[in-house]
Write a protein that binds this DNA or RNA. Sequence first.
DNA 1: CTGTTAGCGCCTTCAG
DNA 2: CTGAAGGCGCTAACAG
Lengths: 337, 337
Amino acid sequence: MNITEVAKRAKVSTATVSRTINGSSIVSPETADKVWNVVRALGYHPNRYARALVSGRSHLLGLIISDIVNPFFPELIKSFEEMALQKGLEVLLANTNYDPERMSHWVHRMLERKVDGVGIMTSEMEEGLVAELEKRRIPIVFLDTGKVRSRISNIRVNYGKGIRAAMEHLVQLRHQRIGFISGPLTLRSALTRRTAFLESFGHFGLLPDETLIQVGDHKIDGGKAAMERLLALPKRPTAVLASNDLTAIGALRAIYNANLRIPEDISLVGFDDIYLSQFTQPALTTIRLSRTEVAEKAFNALTALINGKSQKGHEYDVETHLIVRSSTGLHGQSPNS
Amino acid sequence: MNITEVAKRAKVSTATVSRTINGSSIVSPETADKVWNVVRALGYHPNRYARALVSGRSHLLGLIISDIVNPFFPELIKSFEEMALQKGLEVLLANTNYDPERMSHWVHRMLERKVDGVGIMTSEMEEGLVAELEKRRIPIVFLDTGKVRSRISNIRVNYGKGIRAAMEHLVQLRHQRIGFISGPLTLRSALTRRTAFLESFGHFGLLPDETLIQVGDHKIDGGKAAMERLLALPKRPTAVLASNDLTAIGALRAIYNANLRIPEDISLVGFDDIYLSQFTQPALTTIRLSRTEVAEKAFNALTALINGKSQKGHEYDVETHLIVRSSTGLHGQSPNS
DNA sequence: CTGTTAGCGCCTTCAG
DNA sequence: CTGAAGGCGCTAACAG
């Protein structure tokens, strides 16, 4: 059952069927009606492959993320797909697992599928791959790691604001020895968070201490291991900021395993504010980076680049906000510390 | 850059290029070499749309899940995609959000894309949709909710085993009033879990008590609300089994909010054993349903149906196992209970 | 406003 | 073992 069949039954040409379905050019209301009736009657759906083959447009948006098991991403994906659904676009999801080879694999799959645009929500992106995308004139939106140019927009996250707020919060709670568990230093976003931490450390007149910075992997296990190292320090920190919430959850466990209490013995701050953070014990104080906002901005930036008259890329800003819950408390309050 | 270009440069016909690339028929080693050299030199990738258009095969597998935000699914997706990657297949992911309309939407998208097979890892599936898939002779694998027939396999989860083990565990810990928080009763998998609970309840000679069963939604919020209802009971349960881990995490919070301790005041058992369950406070005793195993069985079942000589569907079994951690304890041990 | 026609890039008979 | 040629289903000029 194809366009010819529809054309035959509606007693029009295939071109007319195509036109009414795509609204690509004006068709008289009566003929349009005839066509739609047949389409409905037959339950006809145009063949996407034929359509893509001839038109070159796929109505597909690529979305590349680094770790589908990190709850941050499913939440982002959900919002992004929601928007795509409304606009009649489909999304091709790619999970890189923080692996540059996978990244390259997926970029090539996207090229093959001739996606209309790609959202790159991860930072292990090599210049060569960007160049390939550019060559095919495929619009890109980066999360935080792109330089804006033609057909490339970027969502810039203001990490500093949230981190400064967190530091201020901790300092007000009389913390002086504040540790940080970073993400893998190969990730640009992890580096940015780390830098923001160091800067605000100085800003609050705290003494820099390299041992207070441990490297995690943005997963639970790395957070736990890093926290264990922090706890083994001769002078352990009284508060710790983690580069993402998963890291904080791992840290939480390490702290409990050491028979310490939160926040009486150690205060803990996460980053991202994944949905789950409200439900840890105690509920996690964290810096919110709204997935919905990121997803919406990414989607809109992409469609602007795709459909817009101008191909000029833009910088979009997303703020971060401190959400105070129960994992942070006054230092020195504990009866036995 | 297309097949004609490759043919020209290799000084062979397009048919030969097609044949060497697909290995569909025998090509002499020398010509094959010539072709491959040109292919590599040009970085040529066949156009998927043209290929799918003419061959009718998409090399796409559909994977339908109900809630991407429930960590159970990302973990499953990850394993499934891993396997697909190895076999050179791609997966089209669809999230229904427990919404039958979305389900219908996605099934139609899959039909349009002519997926080679579909894994349906959710239970809100209407017969009509199955019929449409069957009409196009598309193989299906269900998670737990399908009846095996031609081109339809099913992964049967032995919920009973894990639930019985959990009940036995609780009974040995001297619990008698055991509550259950079910999933939404519209979900067949939730119903099955509920039934298994009720059966083993009788099996251990416990008195049935309808008020001890509350309905959740397989999400955190529903678990929390259901647990609050359980706690408000004149005679509250001393142990609670939740229909999935997310529900248990919500319950955890409700229990803490009521200033009760786990497991001293209330024991809690989850279901699924998502990765996170090890990291709740206390670590969750739960019934493991291996995502990896489900994903692998689903994938293999699907490829067997697609490539196998026989179109006969099969029933595959997956066991569940009790994982004892720290959220369950002896009843009546608490100093102040 | 509508129909005719030429491909899009590839696979697959059918001959050689 | 290899080449020529016909479509897969659709869209996009180009005429009318």
